[in-house]
Simulated assay, not measured.
Amino acid sequence: MLITFNLVMIGTLLSLFVGGPLGIWAGSSRRVHAVSEVIVTTLQTLPSFVYLVPVVMLLGPGDATAVIAIALYSVATTVRYTDHAIRNVDPTTIEAAVAFGATPLQTFWKVRLPLARPGLMLGLNQTILMCVGMVVITALVGSQGLELETVDAIARVEPGRGLLAGLAISALAIILDRYVGAVAEKLNAPGSPRANSSS
Protein backbone atom coordinates (compact mmCIF):
# COMPACT_ATOMS: atom_id res chain seq x y z
CA MET A 1 0.00 0.00 0.00
CA LEU A 2 2.92 2.36 0.68
CA ILE A 3 3.98 2.30 -2.98
CA THR A 4 0.44 3.09 -4.09
CA PHE A 5 0.18 5.88 -1.51
CA ASN A 6 3.46 7.40 -2.71
CA LEU A 7 2.35 7.28 -6.35
CA VAL A 8 -0.92 9.00 -5.47
CA MET A 9 0.69 11.70 -3.34
CA ILE A 10 3.50 12.52 -5.78
CA GLY A 11 1.02 12.53 -8.68
CA THR A 12 -1.24 14.86 -6.70
CA LEU A 13 1.62 17.26 -5.92
CA LEU A 14 2.64 17.39 -9.59
CA SER A 15 -0.96 17.99 -10.61
CA LEU A 16 -1.30 20.83 -8.09
CA PHE A 17 2.04 22.32 -9.13
CA VAL A 18 0.91 22.52 -12.78
CA GLY A 19 -2.87 22.80 -12.51
CA GLY A 20 -3.05 25.21 -9.58
CA PRO A 21 -1.39 28.18 -11.30
CA LEU A 22 -3.22 27.43 -14.56
CA GLY A 23 -6.54 27.34 -12.71
CA ILE A 24 -5.78 30.63 -10.96
CA TRP A 25 -4.85 32.18 -14.31
CA ALA A 26 -8.06 30.87 -15.89
CA GLY A 27 -10.11 32.13 -12.96
CA SER A 28 -8.62 35.60 -13.31
CA SER A 29 -8.93 35.98 -17.09
CA ARG A 30 -11.99 35.48 -19.30
CA ARG A 31 -9.93 34.64 -22.37
CA VAL A 32 -7.82 32.06 -20.58
CA HIS A 33 -10.98 30.64 -19.00
CA ALA A 34 -12.61 30.20 -22.42
CA VAL A 35 -9.55 28.41 -23.80
CA SER A 36 -9.02 26.27 -20.71
CA GLU A 37 -12.65 25.12 -20.69
CA VAL A 38 -12.24 23.60 -24.14
CA ILE A 39 -8.93 21.93 -23.28
CA VAL A 40 -10.08 20.67 -19.87
CA THR A 41 -13.32 19.26 -21.27
CA THR A 42 -11.39 17.47 -24.01
CA LEU A 43 -8.89 16.01 -21.52
CA GLN A 44 -11.67 14.78 -19.23
CA THR A 45 -13.39 12.90 -22.06
CA LEU A 46 -10.27 10.86 -22.95
CA PRO A 47 -10.02 7.30 -21.59
CA SER A 48 -7.51 6.96 -18.77
CA PHE A 49 -5.21 4.54 -20.60
CA VAL A 50 -4.65 7.13 -23.35
CA TYR A 51 -2.46 9.11 -20.95
CA LEU A 52 -0.08 6.17 -20.65
CA VAL A 53 0.84 5.97 -24.33
CA PRO A 54 2.87 9.19 -24.82
CA VAL A 55 4.55 8.91 -21.42
CA VAL A 56 5.63 5.31 -22.03
CA MET A 57 6.96 6.28 -25.46
CA LEU A 58 9.10 9.03 -23.89
CA LEU A 59 10.23 7.44 -20.62
CA GLY A 60 9.55 3.72 -20.88
CA PRO A 61 7.83 1.68 -18.15
CA GLY A 62 8.42 2.37 -14.46
CA ASP A 63 7.26 4.35 -11.45
CA ALA A 64 8.27 7.71 -12.95
CA THR A 65 6.04 6.99 -15.94
CA ALA A 66 3.20 6.03 -13.59
CA VAL A 67 3.52 9.27 -11.60
CA ILE A 68 3.52 11.47 -14.69
CA ALA A 69 0.53 9.61 -16.16
CA ILE A 70 -1.37 10.06 -12.88
CA ALA A 71 -0.56 13.78 -12.83
CA LEU A 72 -1.60 14.23 -16.47
CA TYR A 73 -4.89 12.46 -15.84
CA SER A 74 -5.78 14.54 -12.79
CA VAL A 75 -4.46 17.97 -13.85
CA ALA A 76 -7.65 18.81 -15.77
CA THR A 77 -9.66 18.34 -12.55
CA THR A 78 -7.24 20.60 -10.67
CA VAL A 79 -7.53 23.34 -13.28
CA ARG A 80 -11.33 23.17 -13.42
CA TYR A 81 -11.95 23.27 -9.66
CA THR A 82 -9.34 25.98 -9.07
CA ASP A 83 -10.80 28.07 -11.90
CA HIS A 84 -14.31 27.59 -10.48
CA ALA A 85 -13.24 28.49 -6.93
CA ILE A 86 -11.45 31.69 -8.00
CA ARG A 87 -14.27 32.83 -10.30
CA ASN A 88 -16.97 32.24 -7.67
CA VAL A 89 -15.55 34.75 -5.18
CA ASP A 90 -18.08 37.52 -4.56
CA PRO A 91 -17.07 40.41 -6.91
CA THR A 92 -18.46 43.01 -4.50
CA THR A 93 -15.88 41.92 -1.92
CA ILE A 94 -13.11 42.36 -4.47
CA GLU A 95 -14.47 45.79 -5.40
CA ALA A 96 -14.54 46.79 -1.73
CA ALA A 97 -10.91 45.74 -1.28
CA VAL A 98 -9.88 47.76 -4.33
CA ALA A 99 -11.89 50.75 -3.09
CA PHE A 100 -9.96 50.64 0.19
CA GLY A 101 -6.71 50.88 -1.74
CA ALA A 102 -5.59 47.26 -1.95
CA THR A 103 -3.20 46.45 -4.76
CA PRO A 104 -4.03 43.58 -7.16
CA LEU A 105 -1.50 41.36 -5.38
CA GLN A 106 -2.92 42.22 -1.95
CA THR A 107 -6.44 41.65 -3.22
CA PHE A 108 -5.49 38.22 -4.49
CA TRP A 109 -3.59 37.02 -1.40
CA LYS A 110 -5.69 38.69 1.31
CA VAL A 111 -9.18 38.53 -0.19
CA ARG A 112 -9.67 36.32 -3.24
CA LEU A 113 -7.55 33.35 -2.17
CA PRO A 114 -8.95 33.05 1.40
CA LEU A 115 -12.53 33.33 0.15
CA ALA A 116 -11.85 30.68 -2.49
CA ARG A 117 -10.43 28.26 0.10
CA PRO A 118 -13.51 25.96 0.35
CA GLY A 119 -13.58 25.50 -3.41
CA LEU A 120 -9.82 24.96 -3.51
CA MET A 121 -10.03 22.29 -0.81
CA LEU A 122 -12.79 20.58 -2.78
CA GLY A 123 -10.53 20.67 -5.82
CA LEU A 124 -7.71 19.09 -3.80
CA ASN A 125 -10.06 16.36 -2.65
CA GLN A 126 -11.24 15.61 -6.18
CA THR A 127 -7.68 15.66 -7.52
CA ILE A 128 -6.61 13.04 -4.97
CA LEU A 129 -9.58 10.83 -5.83
CA MET A 130 -8.81 11.13 -9.55
CA CYS A 131 -5.22 10.09 -8.81
CA VAL A 132 -6.44 7.07 -6.85
CA GLY A 133 -8.72 6.13 -9.74
CA MET A 134 -5.84 6.36 -12.20
CA VAL A 135 -3.30 4.47 -10.10
CA VAL A 136 -4.83 1.07 -10.96
CA ILE A 137 -4.20 1.66 -14.66
CA THR A 138 -0.51 2.39 -14.01
CA ALA A 139 0.08 -1.31 -13.31
CA LEU A 140 0.18 -1.60 -17.11
CA VAL A 141 3.40 0.45 -17.16
CA GLY A 142 5.25 -1.34 -14.39
CA SER A 143 4.19 0.17 -11.06
CA GLN A 144 4.54 -2.35 -8.24
CA GLY A 145 1.89 -1.46 -5.63
CA LEU A 146 -1.62 -2.68 -4.95
CA GLU A 147 -2.54 -1.79 -8.51
CA LEU A 148 -0.25 -4.58 -9.76
CA GLU A 149 -1.92 -7.02 -7.39
CA THR A 150 -5.32 -6.06 -8.77
CA VAL A 151 -4.37 -6.42 -12.43
CA ASP A 152 -2.39 -9.62 -11.83
CA ALA A 153 -5.32 -11.16 -9.93
CA ILE A 154 -7.66 -10.35 -12.82
CA ALA A 155 -5.23 -11.91 -15.30
CA ARG A 156 -4.93 -15.07 -13.18
CA VAL A 157 -8.68 -15.18 -12.48
CA GLU A 158 -8.21 -14.92 -8.72
CA PRO A 159 -11.29 -12.94 -7.62
CA GLY A 160 -10.53 -13.09 -3.89
CA ARG A 161 -7.04 -11.64 -4.29
CA GLY A 162 -8.29 -9.00 -6.69
CA LEU A 163 -11.14 -8.07 -4.35
CA LEU A 164 -8.77 -7.61 -1.40
CA ALA A 165 -6.41 -5.42 -3.40
CA GLY A 166 -9.34 -3.39 -4.75
CA LEU A 167 -10.76 -2.93 -1.25
CA ALA A 168 -7.36 -1.78 0.01
CA ILE A 169 -7.19 0.87 -2.73
CA SER A 170 -10.76 1.92 -1.89
CA ALA A 171 -9.81 2.17 1.78
CA LEU A 172 -6.87 4.39 0.83
CA ALA A 173 -9.21 6.66 -1.14
CA ILE A 174 -11.67 6.86 1.76
CA ILE A 175 -8.93 7.65 4.29
CA LEU A 176 -7.51 10.43 2.11
CA ASP A 177 -10.99 11.80 1.45
CA ARG A 178 -11.82 11.90 5.17
CA TYR A 179 -8.48 13.47 6.04
CA VAL A 180 -8.80 16.26 3.47
CA GLY A 181 -12.40 16.84 4.56
CA ALA A 182 -11.34 17.12 8.20
CA VAL A 183 -8.58 19.59 7.31
CA ALA A 184 -11.04 21.66 5.27
CA GLU A 185 -13.53 21.76 8.16
CA LYS A 186 -10.80 22.81 10.57
CA LEU A 187 -9.61 25.61 8.26
CA ASN A 188 -13.16 26.88 7.73
CA ALA A 189 -14.18 26.63 11.39
CA PRO A 190 -15.27 30.01 12.82
CA GLY A 191 -12.65 29.91 15.57
CA SER A 192 -9.67 28.98 13.39
CA PRO A 193 -6.97 31.62 12.82
CA ARG A 194 -7.22 31.25 9.03
CA ALA A 195 -10.97 31.66 9.06
CA ASN A 196 -10.65 34.76 11.22
CA SER A 197 -7.99 36.24 8.98
CA SER A 198 -10.24 35.94 5.92
CA SER A 199 -13.31 37.37 7.64
Rank of each mutant, 00 (worst) to 15 (best):
A171T: 11
T92L: 04
L46I: 12
A34W: 09
P104E: 01
R156D: 14
F100S: 14
L129V: 07
V136G: 12
R178C: 13
E158I: 05
A99C: 14
Y179R: 10
T45C: 01
V89C: 03
I39F: 04
V89G: 00
V132K: 03
P61I: 15
L146F: 14
I94V: 15
I10L: 08
N188F: 01
N125L: 13
I10R: 11
A34D: 12
T82P: 07
I86V: 12
V8G: 00
G119D: 00
L22N: 03
S197I: 09
G133P: 09
V38Q: 10
L43F: 10
L43A: 05
V141M: 03
G133T: 14
A26L: 00
T103H: 06
G181A: 07
V67P: 06
M57L: 15
L172Q: 05
S29E: 08
A139R: 00
T77Q: 13
L164P: 00
P61T: 14
L146E: 08
V111R: 12
I128T: 05
L7E: 13
A76I: 04
V141K: 04
R30C: 01
E149V: 15
V89Y: 02
P104T: 05
D177H: 06
R31Q: 14
K110V: 07
V183K: 11
N125V: 04
V98R: 15
V40T: 09
L58E: 00
W109E: 15
N88R: 00
Q126H: 14
G166V: 05
V136M: 03
S199P: 02
P193G: 08
S199V: 08
I169S: 04
M57H: 08
L176N: 00
H84G: 12
V40I: 07
T150F: 12
V38R: 11
G27H: 01
L2C: 01
